[in-house]
Amino acid sequence: MLRSYSPSEYLFFTAAVFSGLLTAAVFGFLFFFGLPLLQSGQLADVLFSSWAPGKGLYGIYPMLLSSLTLATLSMLISFPISLGCSFIITALAPLRLRRVLLALIRVMTGIPTVVYSFAALFFLVPLMRNLIGHGSGMSILTAAPVLALVIAPTMILFFVNSFNKVSPRFTLAAEALGCSKIQKILYIILPQAWPGVINGILLGFGRAMGDTMVSLMLAGNSTAMPEAVTDSARTLTAHIALVLAFDFDSMEFKSIFVCGLSLYLLTALLMLLFRLSTAYFSQAR
């Protein structure tokens, strides 16, 4: 099809392509710097061995494990709470209260994670120290509830939004047949909107994996392999944040790129799944 392009269209197109290229550029940077490590065949060593610079071991496996454990644990706390809150905001509460709660949850998305972590560092950590009975009180178990608090608004807003998209034809029909509010949610809205719930979990998990400040300030940053959730641990993001402590030519520094690449690829994969499931479920309907 022949079309004449206006100059403004070129301008807008350039902006979009530029932003797209930046996404690739970030990956390019990480890949370019990680290349020597990949070429020398040390990738498996770096990914799956433990971190012991004294013995020449620079593996990020403990960090990978801590990141996944922390993200999973905080999801386990956050998901039921978020689902419950989204039930309340969608239907259970009176209309006026729903509006207030929704506004409050939106304001919660704006609270800086560093502020949460700072308050939790002086409030929660001493409590956990007494509870666990050993160590500094900084552990995966300390960081998980705070991280759950950080990702809850993201998930609640997503759940509420997908619940609200359920056609009023169904909900009105159900109400006309005399079903209660909780019945409306459980038997009409949830079966219709469950793809939204899965997508919300994907988004929340991505955010939990990507958060730096909570794990950096509350999880303790020990490089040892965490054996229990009450152990101090260092996540991938916190490991990158501590990069400036290293020499730029050292092996420690090179392991950072593998951390960065794993995080990039992991979040990209989550986003791909998110897009695919959105496309799949919207087609299926």
Binding site: G210, T212, I240, M271
Partner: peptide, 20 residues
């Protein structure tokens, strides 16, 4: 998809790219 990935990149990785 590209913009979703860009939105999903953890902020620390963006900072790392700047450092690189």
């Amino acid at each position: 998809l590209t913009f979703d990935i860009l939105a999903g990149i953890p902020s620390i990785v963006v900072g790392l790219a700047g450092l690189l």
